[in-house]
Computed example of a mutant assay.
Amino acid sequence: MIKTQGIQLSTNTIKSIIIASFLSVVIFLIVGFSGGFIINPESVIPEVYIAINSVCFVLCWLTLHVLVSKFSIYKILGVLGLLCLSAIAEYYFQIPNNPISIPALILFWMGISYFIIPQFFKKYQILILLSYGGVITYFFIFRGKPNYAEDYSFVVTGYFILSISMMILLWGYYQWKWYMNLKVNQTKNELILLKSQINPHFFFNTLNNLYGLVIEKSDHAPEMILKLSDIMRYTIYEGKSDFVDLKEEIKYIEDYIELSKIRYNKKVEISFKKEIEIPQKIAPILLVIPIENAFKHGIDSLTENAFLDIEIKTGKSHIFFSVKNNYASTNTNHKGIGLDNFKQRLAIMYPNNHKLNINTTDNEYELSLYIETL
Rank of each mutant, 00 (worst) to 15 (best):
N189P: 00
N363F: 03
K145G: 01
Q197C: 05
N359F: 11
V31C: 14
F204Q: 01
G36V: 03
I231P: 00
I337T: 11
D242R: 08
Q175G: 00
P200C: 09
L105I: 08
G81R: 05
S131A: 15
L83M: 15
I231L: 14
G134E: 09
N325C: 03
I319F: 06
F243A: 03
L228V: 10
P118G: 07
L59S: 03
F307W: 10
K183E: 10
K240I: 08
V31F: 12
W109Y: 12
T235H: 02
A328E: 10
E150M: 06
I116G: 03
N189Y: 06
G239N: 05
Q280H: 10
S317A: 05
H65Y: 15
F120Y: 15
G78M: 02
V58N: 02
I128E: 07
N293R: 07
R263C: 12
I27H: 09
I310E: 01
F37C: 04
F295S: 02
N357P: 00
Y234A: 06
C84H: 04
Y132H: 13
F33S: 06
L308A: 02
V44G: 02
I50Y: 13
K240Y: 07
N181G: 05
L62I: 15
V184Y: 11
E90N: 15
G78Y: 04
N185F: 04
V79S: 10
I14A: 14
I39M: 11
E249P: 10
P118K: 06
S368T: 15
V214I: 15
P99R: 07
K281R: 13
L130A: 14
L9M: 13
P290F: 11
V156C: 06
T303P: 00
P118C: 06
I312S: 07
A89P: 02
T11L: 13
E90I: 02
L80F: 12
Q175H: 04
L77V: 06
F154M: 11
H318N: 14
N293T: 13
E223K: 12
P284K: 12
I14R: 15
H318R: 10
E47Q: 12
Y152V: 03
N341M: 09
I73T: 14
N12K: 10
K281H: 11
I168T: 09
F93K: 07
S165F: 13
M166N: 11
I19H: 12
L77I: 12
I52R: 12
K227E: 09
L29R: 05
V26Y: 08
P41A: 14
I250Y: 02
